[in-house]
Amino acid sequence: MEDKKNKKTRRDFLKAGLAFGAGSLAGVGLFSTIDGVKAETGKLAKVLTADGKIMEVDTSHLKEFGKKTEQDLQKRGRKGIAGRKWTMVIDLSKCRNARMCMAACQSAHELKPEQHHINVLAMQDAEKTAPFFMPKPCQHCDNPPCTKVCPVDATFKRSDGIVLIDNERCIGCRFCIAACPYSARIFNWSEPKVAADDREYDVELNVPQKRGTVSKCLFSADQLRDEKMPYCASACPNGVYWFGDMNEDAVTNGTTKETVRFSELIKNNAGYTLLPELGTKPSVYYLPAKDRLFEFNLNGKTTLDNNEHV
């Protein structure tokens, strides 16, 4: 009797051990998918080495020459572009609500019509003041409320001032959306417009978009990497956007390609930032909507109702 009992407990123990083992294996599996480590496929591919030999390697290790892998893109994406401090100046006196910026942005980032990285808002500060249009991208704050609250470092601030999102890491808790006072962040509530395929995920473009993760304006970090202007700035027909490097103290107009001193542009035109009382220290500056050469017109209306701008 006693012996039988012992045997039973031994067997139970082994069973428990097996279950634990399987559990940890499953755990390891989960970890490896999270970190993007590819499992061996077991299939071999023949490759030609520089000295003319034909070798066999597991297909999971194959990598096209010159092509950046996801890890490469992540690594440089998290660091930022050395020595830069990007800034944008939005001249509200030029904005006529053409919305080319929104279109260019949505197409580059594969966004649905209701998803905006940049959104042109009809604004009016008080009842008697004049209405105006205000493009609103992410402010790329120097004291970003969003990156502080992220539990997994999926959204982060780079050395060049850009706030990015790693949608390979984002857990979709949406704390950053709650924390952002500029409502600059969006969420992929369902399947994105263009589904994820075998393209490498570029953290500087946030494409392909992924379901259940957050997205937002990236200052077109991928364009900056290629020394080009952001998508919105180059698409604008009205010269609204100035973009450049605060370290160089120079910004270039996306439409006219004219380059001016950042500090002088801000000083001479009474530049300001949005909601400065919140202490977020935006990298986006606005020039006031004065001396406009056109009428404000929103679907035929020349002024806004109280409930439309608050």
């Binding site: 999270i34 997994v152 857990i171 993760t213």
Partner: peptide, 13 residues
């Protein structure tokens, strides 16, 4: 959570 499959990220990162 939008990505409950990534719950472990909270401990990893």
């Amino acid at each position: 959570m939008g990505r409950p499959d990534r719950l472990l990220n909270v401990f990893l990162h």
